[in-house]
Simulated scan of single mutants.
Amino acid sequence: MAELKCILWDVDGTLADTERDGHRVAFNMAFDEAGHKREWSVATYGELLAVTGGKERIRFDIDRGDMHEMPFEEIAGLHARKTAHYETLIAEGRIPLRPGVRRLLEEAYAAGITLGVSTTTTPSALDALIEHSLGPEWFDRFAVLAAGDIVAAKKPAPDIYTYAMDQLGVSAENTIALEDSENGWKSAHAAGLKCVVTVNDYTRDHDFTGADLVVSELGEPDGDAVDVLQDLHTLDVHHVKLSHLKAIMHD
């Protein structure tokens, strides 16, 4: 029976609720600053989340006719300004961690489990979230920060997870992924990983057919959260103790 040795975290929507009041707001600030007559509503941004990557979302909006055509350099510049605005929002304390995240991270680190990040968010945005929402000590506690364009194919492709495991020298059988979206769990699954999905307002209606476990949040369990993940990792999810499921599921 394989031992859980590594946990790989998605960021946006998983570590923190970054999308609606973070990335979306920052995009709109960048659009306004550049003089674009475009504002992404909550509903519109929910649709755009089906596209992985910020620059890719701008391109998608252009291709469907909701923004004017622009070269890649302009898209990249617009996205860079968006990232700067997003980092300011984080520094202002407007993007807290999701419930249970800090406890699980602390318990896993104390238990000697390798921790890493596998995300499509930009490295500077990830750095800002770690700095202001987790604390600077986590730059050393995360053994790998796989982020942004470090791989060519973004989620749902498995590349970012494969890259992180290669960097860490761990195997899929000893690793579990934490995600929040359909594209995210498909990416983890394609990399051979078991995956726990913690849905949010944007992703609770996604198709998670085939996912190992879907919960509303990690919560603040009375027991050992790392033991919960170990059970989910080593056993068929349907045989995990009901008390363990209740420990992390808040419906």
Rank of each mutant, 00 (worst) to 15 (best):
residue 144 V to P: 14
residue 78 L to P: 13
residue 54 G to D: 15
residue 248 I to S: 03
residue 119 T to W: 01
residue 82 K to G: 15
residue 191 A to E: 02
residue 130 I to T: 04
residue 72 F to G: 06
residue 191 A to D: 02
residue 104 L to N: 03
residue 214 V to Y: 03
residue 120 T to W: 01
residue 6 C to F: 00
residue 70 M to V: 05
residue 69 E to C: 12
residue 95 I to E: 11
residue 182 E to F: 04
residue 182 E to D: 10
residue 33 E to Q: 11
residue 108 A to S: 13
residue 248 I to Y: 10
residue 48 L to T: 14
residue 112 G to K: 10
residue 36 H to Y: 15
residue 172 A to N: 11
residue 129 L to P: 09
residue 23 H to F: 04
residue 170 V to E: 14
residue 86 Y to I: 04
residue 78 L to D: 12
residue 110 A to D: 08
residue 219 G to N: 13
residue 33 E to H: 12
residue 250 H to Q: 13
residue 167 Q to W: 10
residue 1 M to S: 13
residue 120 T to R: 00
residue 101 V to I: 15
residue 165 M to L: 11
residue 15 L to K: 11
residue 42 V to P: 06
residue 80 A to Y: 04
residue 237 V to M: 14
residue 160 I to V: 11
residue 183 N to A: 07
residue 101 V to C: 10
residue 98 R to A: 02
residue 202 Y to D: 10
residue 5 K to L: 06
residue 128 A to N: 15
residue 143 A to I: 00
residue 183 N to F: 07
residue 79 H to Q: 14
residue 59 R to E: 13
residue 17 D to H: 07
residue 39 E to D: 06
residue 88 T to N: 13
residue 136 P to A: 09
residue 63 D to L: 14
residue 2 A to D: 15
residue 62 I to S: 14
residue 89 L to M: 13
residue 36 H to W: 09
residue 210 G to D: 02
residue 31 F to C: 11
residue 212 D to M: 09
residue 31 F to L: 09
residue 247 A to W: 05
residue 244 H to L: 14
residue 57 R to L: 09
residue 211 A to Q: 02
residue 224 D to P: 02
residue 8 L to S: 04
residue 12 D to S: 09
residue 1 M to Q: 05
residue 11 V to Y: 04
residue 28 N to P: 03
residue 198 T to R: 03
residue 9 W to F: 15
residue 138 W to S: 06
residue 175 T to E: 09
residue 8 L to F: 00
residue 8 L to D: 06
residue 251 D to A: 07
residue 209 T to P: 06
residue 174 N to V: 00
residue 144 V to C: 13
residue 104 L to W: 10
residue 237 V to K: 03
residue 232 L to H: 03
residue 78 L to C: 15
residue 224 D to E: 07
residue 197 V to R: 00
residue 198 T to W: 11
residue 81 R to W: 07
residue 213 L to W: 01
residue 170 V to W: 15
residue 119 T to S: 14
residue 164 A to P: 07
residue 2 A to F: 02
residue 177 A to N: 03
residue 130 I to S: 02
residue 185 W to Q: 03
residue 199 V to K: 06
residue 113 I to F: 01
residue 91 A to T: 11
residue 85 H to K: 13
residue 208 F to S: 02
residue 5 K to Y: 07
residue 214 V to P: 00
residue 43 A to D: 11
residue 190 A to C: 03
